[in-house]
Design a protein around this nucleic acid. Structure first.
Length: 355
DNA sequence: AAGGCGGGGGA
DNA sequence: TCCCCAGCCTT
């Protein structure tokens, strides 16, 4: 069997020197981040999930708060999902929180609350993909496994002058093979974290600081002078827009109508003010159909625009009063009770408009 | 392989 | 604006 995508490390590449330069640099400059306090696998795990597609500075306060609230696997496993989501509120990609919660329950049920160090067991846990698997194995258990993220693909594409499109799924395998060939077996943790730290601080997407780079002498792209052309990445298409009415509805007691979103899809299991897709239908008629109650619209006032990774919402705020006490869907809460529920940021934008 | 899935920061 | 970020899951 033949694999045409295999990549070979150049004969003249000094693997040991590369490892030493990278690791000694990392150990000398590494940032004092909260998840580097110790090697507790649970802490490493939580941090790696939070760091998916999310920058370090954003994660720090969430991590501290989360570990304070759920210090051990047992604490998290015994928590209600709504409380976990409340801790995740505003961080985004909420399936990460739901998957982590489910996976930690599995760890408590099957492994006595101890995060397994076996690759096959770890990989089966919800939310642990190829990257997080390698990150936990190397950082918490010191195993020489690749942890290839965006940073690593950028750094390695430059060091080895690899021109494959990093937006393609199969390209990641090439970089995993590369890392397997050059990773340090003495200190895989520092090696992997060093690659990521390098990508975050020196080998940045724009204007890489090559003059400060600890592995400059190993870098083919630097030698060729085209480091800013790498990595190659195809563009993704832009988001579609959707228009909604955001319904701010009060009952006669001044309470607000909120509802829980479906258990799947965008912002699953979070809460919201009712959103009505804009159509030809009058608001009152649409509301009667879906909620079985009569509405009197007071005013349309305020506009909220929210950009997700794949869609854009344009929301026109509508203030209304509902008649009667009964409603088929959702529930009325006081302004004070609002903060007990997990809301996505787009809903906080709407609340800001209300004030 | 492609697309869904958040939110923030930098240029 | 656009791109990027310590990616994973479903189809």
């Amino acid at each position: 069997m033949k694999d045409t995508t295999t990549f070979s490390i150049p004969v003249l590449f000094n693997v040991h020197s590369f490892q030493t330069d990278l690791i000694s640099w990392y150990l000398s400059i590494k940032r004092d981040l909260p998840w580097r306090l110790n090697q507790d696998p649970y802490r490493v795990w939580v941090s790696e999930i939070m760091l998916q597609q999310t920058q370090v500075d954003t994660v720090i306060p969430y991590f501290n708060q989360f570990m304070n609230r759920f210090p051990t696997t047992y604490d998290l496993a015994n928590a209600e999902e709504q409380d976990v989501l409340k801790s995740w509120e505003g961080l985004g990609y909420y399936s990460r929180a739901r998957n982590l919660h489910a996976a930690v329950k599995e760890v408590v049920a099957s492994y006595d609350g101890e995060v397994p160090h076996e690759k096959d067991k770890l990989k089966k846990l919800k939310g642990i993909g190829p990257y997080t698997l390698g990150a936990i194995l190397s950082i918490a258990f010191n195993q020489p496994e690749p942890a290839v993220d965006g940073n690593v693909m950028r750094v390695m594409s430059r060091v080895f002058h690899i021109e494959e499109d990093i937006a393609k799924p199969r390209t990641k395998k090439i970089f995993e093979d590369v890392v397997r060939e050059v990773i340090s077996h003495d200190d895989p943790s520092s090696f992997n974290q060093g690659l990521m730290e390098l990508g975050a601080l020196i080998c940045t997407p724009q204007k890489p600081k090559c003059d400060q780079c600890p592995v400059q002498e190993h870098c083919l792209a630097y030698e060729y002078g085209n480091q800013t052309d790498l990595p190659i990445k195809s563009k993704k298409k832009k988001q579609k827009q959707t228009d909604f009415y955001g319904l701010i509805i009060q009952n006669k007691h001044g309470e607000l109508l909120i509802q829980k979103r479906p258990s799947e899809g965008l912002l699953a299991n979070l809460w919201e003010f009712p959103l009505m897709p804009k159509s030809e239908l009058p608001i009152e008629e649409w509301f009667k159909q879906h909620y079985g109650a009569d509405l009197s619209v007071n005013a349309k006032r305020g506009q909220v625009r929210h950009v997700f990774s794949h869609v854009i919402w344009n929301i026109e705020l509508v203030f209304a009063q509902v008649e009667g006490e009964e409603i088929d869907y959702g529930q009325f809460v006081t302004a004070d009770q609002l903060k007990e529920y997990p809301f996505p940021n787009v809903q906080y934008k709407m609340m800001d408009e209300i004030l």
